[in-house]
Nucleic acid binder design. Structure first.
Lengths: 213, 213, 213, 213
DNA sequence: AATGAATGAGGGTTCATTCAT
DNA sequence: GATGAATGAACCCTCATTCAT
């Protein structure tokens, strides 16, 4: 007996709210924030237009909710790794993998987010409030800070050479993103595994020929 | 004799076409592609709405023309460096600098471009045609290929360790972009110089602690 | 034993129907007919949306019921005065006072009613049916007819000079309304008393300077 | 030769702006502010939706412009009468006539205006800004002040007995309005003439039977 | 070549009403 | 009887594009 659908109505068991979020995920990912229309979302969610506004105050807040709910698990996983009692270099490797997994899965939506988040359009009405945008940014920097933390640990333990951890973390982050956005990573585990090692290798040891290698 | 305005009208000597492009640069940079309105562009260009459509078939083509004309000099400079008869590692440094200079100067517009270029909106009417987007992408990869070329040269001369040059070039490119977009680089020459060396250093030698350093 | 709530639920003893009417009174008065929303009414009535539609067929009929129930006592009072066995001029004074009291108490709601009642929106769907509007109008003229009756009595007894009683009654009525809607009357008894005499004075004797006064 | 339509195009010679205002007059009068839709206005004006927004910033401002342009002549006429060098009682009569003419002609639209102007809906978004509403109110009181001025002149010349001129002017005004809104006045000149004298008579001398009359 | 009035498809949002529980 | 999630028609407004002058 299915406890969420006692009478087995058509409803697909996710509830309207989730259906809308799922549809919004798809549409925002495919169209970007501006070109995504509520009409298209409801068509996909198989629901009425009013229903959207029962659950979300407006298009923007629907988008924000989507981002928040999508990243929750990722942020938690990342924090767990940072807290792990392991060698920093191993943790760097694991973090890279978690990043890759998340961004490969959510590449399109996050590209949209990253664009809307930028300073562009500060003036005028704009789709995103300034305060709203700050909320998005915090989410972002928060994940990068996890990287910083791990790198700092490595420096403290003298396995990573002293450098500006903020810049280094951002650099690492940007490479990860680029690999994803340029399509250098596939959806499958082996691909992620391989690219993950690739990144770690170059990030840690550089591309220069040295007598060490 | 005025060489840009044969009949010496009030016109400020740039010609309507250029006035529009200049205004478009500003507005697209500030507002992004979608929020930029033709009305705002003509207000800034001090011209009529119809005039825009005399020179450009539509908003999208105006945007493309803008991108093309803006990047012309940059692409040429880059090609020149690649063709230089110098040490690969020096050429890498010079290329990084040219990249930084260009992207610092045009950060806002390029952020917009990079967003609109993404796979998003493949279906439907969309603002950017699929073919159109390919044209943008080619421009992009073309500049990255210059990096690849230099790196390959380094590998051939055994000053860079063998690796996937395509990925490496993209990695380097992404770090440069990130530095710009995250505001880690200032507008002044010293800043660019410094960040430029930073990037080269980490890119070439990695962050790991080795007995070499 | 609670005589209005046999089973003693939390219900505040007025019954859902009355709660809704009370809330509707407040909301319609504050917002007008169109801007008043059912959502706001149920929030104030502390009831469910469906409940409203159990008691009233639609928003419009809720409004009508409200008007009807509110004016019942007023109409009765007025009829009582008209039937009184007193001097016509005294009755005019009393009627003016009753009018003032009622309209001061219900100024906002009646302003709304008077607007919605107007000829406006004859065609099309409209909020108020033509027949519906007739019902409202009858309520209105009915109260004015009480004034006519008193005036006619005055004419018959030769204390009021012969004139078109219908117009005169409407004139008197309009002055009363104006005093209320223009905020010339306060909520307190003295104010009503004073304005009441004011109106009676001018209505009966005019503003012209005569040797009588 | 018609100097406003040199080439005799279809355009009916009023220009789009005027066509829209004319249509708006009709639709607002018939439907009231809220039920009037821009779609209906453009259908009547035989124009495109965007055109409305080329001339007026929004529905509200269209309405305001309408009111302003309609009342301009009326306000001027009234001021002229007040400034006339005649007997106050004659001026009262003339003013009443001008009021009647104007309100008979514009009864419907002004009913709408008067409703939207009221305090109702102070809170919330509402259709009319508070400041906007003040502008409307000023227009109104301005016309009533003309009446006050004439009445005061009468008092000074001792042909009108001392009383609160503000209240008296409002009283007179309200009676005029009522006559119009109740349909006691026809469109034709005789009717206006007759009602005009009626009002003046009762307003000046009251309804009470005295030995003077 | 330059212009700008006119256009209308399309988008986000509101809200009265229904109906299954 | 009481409820509130679901609905969709309707509304105001934006803005890229056209075309007659």
């Amino acid at each position: 007996m299915n406890n969420s659908q006692e009478h087995g109505q058509v409803d697909d068991g996710r509830g309207k709210r989730q259906q809308i979020l799922d549809a919004a995920y798809t549409v925002f990912s495919r169209k970007g924030y501006h070109r995504a229309t509520v009409d298209e979302i409801i068509a996909l969610a198989d629901t009425g237009k009013g229903t959207v506004y029962n659950y979300f105050v407006n298009k923007e807040q629907l988008f924000y909710t989507l981002i928040k709910e999508c990243s929750a698990k990722f942020e938690a996983d990342l924090a767990a790794i940072a807290a792990l009692d392991e060698l920093p270099l191993d943790k760097v490797g694991k973090a890279i993998k978690v990043f890759l997994e998340f961004y490969v899965a959510n590449a399109d939506l996050w590209r949209v987010l990253m664009y809307e988040m930028r300073g562009v359009g500060t003036e005028g009405k704009s789709a995103f409030t300034l305060v709203q945008r700050e909320k998005y940014k915090e989410r972002f920097t928060h994940t990068i800070e996890m990287l910083e933390k791990i790198l700092q640990e490595g420096i403290d333990q003298k396995v990573i050479r002293p450098c500006d951890v903020t810049k280094a973390a951002h650099g690492l982050f940007s490479v990860i993103l680029m690999m994803v956005f340029q399509g250098f990573v596939g959806q499958n585990d082996e691909s992620i595994e391989k690219v993950s090692r690739n990144i770690a290798d170059i990030f840690l040891y550089g591309v220069a020929q040295t007598n060490n290698n």
